[in-house]
Amino acid sequence: MTRVWAAIVVFLFGAVFAGLAVGYSERTAPSELAMRYLEQVPADLGAANVVTGILITYRGFDTLGEVAVLFMVAASVGMLLSGGRGGSTSPAAVTARPARPPSELVVNGAQVVLPIAFLFGAYVIVNGHLSAGGGFQGGAVVASGVVLLVLGRPSVVLDHGFLSVTESLAGVLYVTLGILGLFFAGGFLDSHILPRGTFGAFVSAGAIPLISALLGIKVAAELSVIIDRFRN
């Protein structure tokens, strides 16, 4: 019976979506807003990657809210997974449990890939204003390296205190940069507090690389904490 109702619901949604897909015609020119962004980000902010410019400066407040969501998720995952489970969360109890050791492939693969993964994550984070990437993307790459680390070496203990301090410091510095924008530039999280520099150079685009790096550190630390919570 459930399946019949589910099939009817999915079919009806499918009919609506089919109408959308058939009626959709590809756009031949960007919208007015997009045109403005495409002109303003290189000219005004000095960032080559328009998406990063939008995310970090024009929609900076939104990005701050998003970071706050990640922070709340890390906190609530910690609360959900550690509360009311006496003893089972300590690392000693985990290592004492007889678990299947990771396969040779994962262990050796982790040794080869880990340095490259962290390096690539750092590269993606600090080149967000020049090419595809940015704080969130690079942070996710670093965190996936951490997943590989805990898969390859199950005995490794991540220092939650260190990660929390790093993450909080990055968050405080991010908000401080935003407040500096209120005094020295056009408003909260305005990246004009630093000089624009040469277009396309590594040190350019005002405060965007700095904010991007802080975001990357914060996201990487937060995701690592979330991942580690699921392990224990």
Binding site: P30, P42, V51, I54, Q137
Partner: peptide, 22 residues
Amino acid sequence: AGARAVDPVPSALVVTAIVIGF
């Protein structure tokens, strides 16, 4: 850029949406 680039706004929104989805 105005003539040959895709709309950057949905891309920026999807970056946000992916993080929230995670």
